[in-house]
Write a protein that binds this DNA or RNA. Structure first.
Lengths: 199, 199
DNA sequence: GGCAATTTTGCACACTAGTTCGAAATCCAT
DNA sequence: ATGGATTTCGAACTAGTGTGCAAAATTGCC
């Protein structure tokens, strides 16, 4: 019964997903606003008009891309490890999960992290992203209260520095091996929890 | 002899600096590309053409703004504390300096950190920024070799996580008090060197 | 009051932006 | 070959882009 023969009929060409992939890459290269439908079409070797068969607007391309990133991040919060155990364990799990999503959906999350809130789509994405931030922030406070984290630094600053490290990955990580991501998550946790100083 | 009475003659209005300040704020709010000369003129309560009396192009506005940020960062590398003492001391000094420049010239550095390299001006800025990164990276390696930093993590990753924390400040820091910046630098160094774990 | 200096203005231009629409192209199944 | 399904195309449109220029406005100094 494995008939997933992906029904093809009609003139062959891009499907929505394939266009999205290339579009997001271009958005990250030049920035969303600086990427015109013209150069986007050129990269696809398509006419501008053809893109509008798959998307109703440039805004919708961005929308689907941001959803891809946000669904991944929000999914982490629902996983077993994110809701079970001590606060420090859950925090560590979520941070590892964020690194995992960041690396596996790299271009989508990269795009998300650059959104400024110019349009309704962007503002909605920012709202969802801030909700994720607040969830992590709550874990930081909980972990501090249970005595796992130091209490001499404002937990809001702590949360932001944590996100600073994790999110920066989007700016420089380039996938090379399959285990890089896990190694990277280990490094982030090691630096964040134990620090860089030799001891 | 304190005659810094700023010679004023001719029709009063903006000087280049005042326009730059507002322009950079707008650039950070909407993004450089998404900020048209039209809305910029509206924010200045000026006509578009008036801006061209102070700047030869939109690109030049960006250029001067990025110079402001880069001069500040590069200046840190020339200060006494950045060239004297052990590697770990110099590294700490430069990181504190980066936080200081970041907070004191916040909008300019924020703009710099978002540059993608679309134009010649942007590419030149990226080159200068990368040179600053390499200088810090060299300090990290030196500090590791002298035994001050742990050696079980790739120094390139270390450098990037450090910049991740420091640069993230541009995304959320809002000046409130005069001592915030120094306190913030302390927090960054504390997390980076000693970690978040209670000990 | 006139002069030089400085800033602002209105209008125009060439160009690019995102988007629409009807028609053409190319596949699969019959 | 025919028909339905899917994708692409060319051409066009409107709104908005960054920019240039000559003229006007408003100041301090003589």
């Amino acid at each position: 019964m494995s008939d997933v023969h992906t029904p093809k009929r009609g003139r062959p060409g891009y499907d929505q997903r394939a266009i999205l992939e290339i579009a997001v890459t271009a958005f990250n290269e030049y920035g969303y606003d600086a990427t015109s439908m013209g150069v986007l079409a050129a990269r696809l070797a398509l006419s501008k008009a053809a893109i509008y068969h798959h998307f109703s607007s440039k805004d919708e391309v961005l929308q689907l891309a941001l959803d891809e990133a946000l669904n991944g991040l929000e999914g982490v919060l629902l996983e077993y490890g994110a809701v079970t155990g001590t606060a420090i364990d859950r925090l560590a799990y979520v941070l590892r999960g964020a690194v995992r999503v960041l690396t596996s959906r790299l271009p989508y999350v990269t795009l998300l992290l650059r959104v400024r809130g110019n349009t309704d789509v962007e503002r909605l994405a920012l709202t969802r992203r801030r909700a994720f931030d607040r969830a992590v922030s709550a874990l930081v406070i909980e972990a501090r209260d249970e005595g796992s984290l130091r209490s001499d630094i404002d937990p809001r600053v702590v949360t932001r520095l944590l996100f600073g490290m994790v999110n920066s990955i989007a700016e420089w990580y380039r996938p090379e091996g399959p285990e890089d991501a896990a190694q990277l998550a280990d490094d982030v946790l090691a630096v964040a929890l134990d620090g860089l100083r030799r001891r």
